[in-house]
Computed example of a mutant assay.
Amino acid sequence: MRSLTYLACVLIVMGLAFWAYRENYRTQTAMGEMSQLQREIAGLREDLGVLRAEWAYLNRPERLRELVNLNFDRLQLIPQESGQVIDLGNIDYPKPPAPPEPDEEGANVAPEE
C-alpha cells in the first residue's frame, strides 16, 4: 500500500512539473509578444509625433496666407470678420412635416397635398 502511495505522489509531482514547464514557455511566449507590441506602439507614437510636426509646419499662418494670396483668383478667400459669425439659435430650420391625422377607423391617413 505504501508503494502505491509513493507511486501516486511521484506521478502527481511529475504532472505538476510538466504543467509548470508548459506554463513557463507560454509565459515567455506571451512576454515576447507583449514586448513586440510595445516596440510597435513606440514606433507608431514616433510616427504620430512626426505627422503632428508636419501638420503644424503645413498650417503655419504665414504659409496659409501666402497660399490664399497665390490662389485668390480661383478661391476668392477673404479674412473672416466677427460680423460673419452668428449664433445657431438665429438660424431658421425648416419645420418638420405634420404627423398624419387618424381617420374614423383609427388608421393614420397621410395629409393631402
Rank of each mutant, 00 (worst) to 15 (best):
N108Y: 06
R65I: 00
K95A: 09
I78C: 04
Q28I: 00
Q84I: 04
G43K: 12
W55S: 04
Y25H: 10
P61I: 00
E81G: 10
N71H: 15
V85E: 07
E112V: 15
P100N: 02
D103K: 02
E33R: 12
S3T: 00
E33N: 10
Q38F: 05
Q76W: 05
G49T: 04
T5S: 07
D47P: 00
E66A: 15
F18D: 03
Y21T: 10
P97G: 03
D73R: 09
L4N: 08
R26C: 01
I91A: 03
E105K: 14
G32P: 01
A8K: 14
E81T: 09
K95D: 04
C9V: 11
S35R: 14
E40K: 15
E81C: 01
M31P: 00
E66F: 12
G15C: 08
A98H: 09
G49M: 01
I91P: 02
V68A: 15
I41Q: 11
G15F: 06
L37R: 15
M1L: 14
L37M: 14
Q38M: 05
R63V: 10
E46Q: 14
Y93G: 07
P111L: 08
Y21Q: 12
E101Y: 01
R63T: 13
A107Y: 08
Y21E: 14
T29D: 12
P100W: 00
W55F: 05
I86V: 11
S3P: 05
V10E: 13
V50C: 05
Q28R: 13
L70P: 02
A30Y: 02
E104V: 13
P79W: 06
N24P: 01
L48S: 03
W55K: 13
A98V: 12
V109F: 00
Q84A: 10
Y25K: 03
E33Q: 13
Y25C: 02
A98E: 10
Q76K: 14
E104L: 12
